[in-house]
Design a protein around this nucleic acid. Structure first.
Lengths: 186, 186
DNA sequence: CGAGTTTAGGAACGATCGTTCTTGACTGAT
DNA sequence: ATCAGTCAAGAACGATCGTTCCTAAACTCG
């Protein structure tokens, strides 16, 4: 009953995630959102309650639909190099870590709920890398370091317009890591 | 001639750098700045021209007075573990990479001048790590990966309130890297 | 074909944004 | 003592912020 929606809620959340991944939260206005999301201001507030509500929805969508597939892919990867390649390259110019990166740096310090979500996702990445690439990583702390390294590599890939450098860097890092774990060698 | 200044310009820039290191550019208002910096609004515009002018001054001060000493310290470090320890721990709750991290994630995409500054500083870190820790890192691309890893480790250290995890992660990463370079082993 | 319900469209709200203006206090040189 | 010059203090500017309100349009159900 009632007039049907003129927008696809999932599509709106995905577009919002793409926006929040590349610009700071406070740098995106409601006008920007309604201009790029194909949703009217009124519908935005009716559906998500507030700008922050939309942001949280985008962050959770990102965790579920972009980071989680990456976590599964890492579990099936044969070594860290393959895991890194999957983490750093995404469809188009984005990656599966961009919004997470942005949230961790600029929203988590100011928003405990964002911080909790970010921590949960990072912990999941840790575990995927710990038990993940064909055999697991025994050294305590190393999985956390690799998660951090992935974030750092992606961060740099965004700054340097060319992605060639980060690919090379990821490969170099992997080459120096792999031989220590017999299970990771071919 | 004229009334003497009631503020220390260097101190103002340092305080601004501390603020911009922990909150997004658009999340800090002029009122926030004048409230925490000990400088009047009028003097701020007289001295730095604009909010962005103050931000650029803070970024350059950060590069010169916080990152550069770190670069020199990395050059004198005996291995990556020591370099990481110096990069991840700073005076107080901050580190020598915080503003750089924030600038790279949330300002560089929107401000080419910031992007150029960030790139230059990251390149300098690359070189320090490449020729730095007692003997140098021969593998092409690995130095860039280590710079990225340092940023990622610091990013995570900020999210997790305890810094114990990142210390452990940095040490674990170093332990898995060092044996590959004979010059880095004690 | 109305009655009821939900959305779209856009104007409008108070608050806050970055920036500028005005006024008075203070200083060093004349 | 006076003048010129700089700074401090805070009010005030237009623009934009996130949010709300009001009305017309488009659908379902009786």
């Amino acid at each position: 009953m009632g007039r049907p929606r003129g927008f696809d809620e999932t599509e709106v959340v995905r577009a919002a995630a793409a926006l929040f991944a590349h610009r700071a939260y406070d740098g995106i206005s409601i006008d920007d959102l309604v201009a790029h999301l194909g949703i009217h201001r009124n519908s935005l507030y009716k559906t998500f309650g507030s700008k922050r509500g939309l942001y949280m929805a985008a962050l959770r969508w990102h965790a579920e639909n972009q980071v989680r597939p990456l976590i599964l892919a890492i579990g099936e990867a044969h070594d860290f190099a393959e895991a890194a390649r999957r983490a750093l390259t995404g469809q188009g110019d984005a990656s599966a870590l961009d919004l997470l990166l942005m949230a961790a740096v600029e929203r988590a310090p100011a928003d405990p709920e964002v911080a909790a979500e970010v921590t949960a996702v990072l912990d999941a990445l840790d575990e995927a890398l710990a038990v993940g690439p064909a055999g697991g990583i025994p050294t305590p702390g190393l999985a956390g370091a690799l998660t951090s390294a992935l974030l750092g590599l992606r961060l740099r890939a965004r700054t340097a317009s060319s992605s060639a450098g980060s690919e090379q860097a990821g490969a170099a890092l992997a080459r120096h890591l792999a031989p220590h774990n017999p299970d990771l060698s071919p």
